Amino acid sequence: MKQEFNAAYWQERYLSNQTGWDTNGITTPLKDYFDQLKDKDLRILIPGCGNAYEAEYLFNKGFTNVFVADVAPAPLENFARRVQNFPKDQLLLQNFFDLQGPYDLIVEQTFFCALNPELRAAYSRKCAELLAPGGRLVGLLFDTTFEHDGPPFGGSAEEYRQYFEPYFRFVHFERAYNSIAPRQGRELFINLQKK
C-alpha cells in the first residue's frame, strides 16, 4: 500500500520524535540571507514549517508579518510554546495547497523534499500563485539522492529547474557554500523571483 504523507503521518513523526531533518535551530544559509533583509514589513510565508526556527529568528529580528503553516498541529504547538508572543493568527494549521496569498517572500526549508515528488510541479505553481508580483521563493533544496525511500526525497538541480522555469526568474540557483556540516555539498540555495 502506498504511504500517504498526510497530517496524521506528520503528526505521528513529531510525536514519536522521528524528526531527523530537524536541525534544532536556523541553518546558516537562511540566517545569512535573512541578515541581509532590510524591509521588516515583508509578508513572509514558511510552509511546511516544522518547528519553525526560521520564523523565530525573523520574528526576534523585528519581522512581524511572518506566517507559518503546517498540516500537523504538534510543530505549531512546539513553536507557540517557544515563541509565546508570536501572533496566534499567524500560525496556520493548513495544507499548503489550500493557502491564500499574497506574500512577498516564501521560505523553503525541507518542505519541498517532504512532499511526494509527484507534487513538485504543483508546488512550484502554488508558490507562484501565493507570491505578489516580484515576490521571491528563497531557501534550500537537496541536490542529492537518498539511499532510503523518502521523505526526504532527493533530486537534482536539472530536475528542479524544469518545475520553476515557467513561473520564476532565477536570481540564484547554485550549490550552497555555507551549508551546515551534515548537508555540505548536498544543497542548492535558491532565490527565485516571480515573473
Rank of each mutant, 00 (worst) to 15 (best):
Q184A: 13
Y103P: 04
L188P: 08
G155V: 01
G134H: 10
R82F: 08
L93Y: 12
F168Q: 06
Y14N: 04
E118C: 05
K61R: 15
S124T: 09
Q162Y: 08
Q193K: 11
S124L: 02
Q184L: 08
Y9D: 12
F67P: 02
K61S: 10
R136M: 04
L76G: 01
N65P: 02
I180D: 15
F146S: 07
N17F: 12
L188N: 10
Y160L: 02
K194V: 04
I26N: 01
Q90R: 12
P87I: 11
K40D: 05
Q184R: 13
G25P: 05
G25E: 03
K2Y: 11
K88A: 14
G50W: 02
R175M: 13
A122K: 13
L42R: 00
D41N: 15
F170V: 07
R183T: 06
R81D: 15
Q3T: 15
R136P: 01
Q94F: 07
N65W: 02
K61Y: 11
A72I: 05
Q84N: 13
K126H: 12
K195M: 08
Y57D: 07
D70Q: 10
E77W: 06
F86K: 01
P166E: 13
L115A: 05
E159Q: 13
G20R: 14
L131A: 00
E108D: 06
P152E: 05
F112A: 07
R161Q: 14
M1D: 15
F189I: 01
Y9P: 03
H148S: 11
S156W: 07
D104R: 07
F59L: 00
L30M: 12
D149M: 10
G25C: 09
R161P: 01
R81I: 13
Q162T: 14
P151C: 04
F67V: 08
K31E: 15
D104M: 04
R161T: 13
R82A: 12
R81Y: 13
H148T: 10
A122M: 10
W10K: 00
Q84H: 14
V83R: 00
R81M: 14
N191T: 09
L141K: 00
E4I: 11
I106G: 02
I106R: 01
L45F: 06
P75I: 00
P73Q: 11
G155H: 05
W10Y: 14
R175G: 12
P151N: 06
A121H: 14
M1N: 14
R175K: 14
G20C: 07
T28G: 06
C113S: 15
F168D: 04
L15A: 15
T110P: 08
I180K: 11
V71A: 07
F63D: 09
R175L: 14
R186I: 04
K126R: 08
F63V: 09
F34P: 03
P117N: 09
Q184T: 13
E129C: 05
Q18V: 03
P87C: 11
Q100C: 08
K38C: 09
L37M: 11
Y57F: 12
L37T: 03
P29E: 10
Y160N: 07
V171P: 08
Y160E: 11
G135L: 00
L105N: 01
F168N: 06
Y177I: 08
S16D: 12
N17E: 14
Y33N: 02
L99R: 10
R81N: 15
F153N: 03
D98K: 13
P133A: 11
F59G: 00
R120L: 02
S16G: 06
P166K: 01
G150H: 10
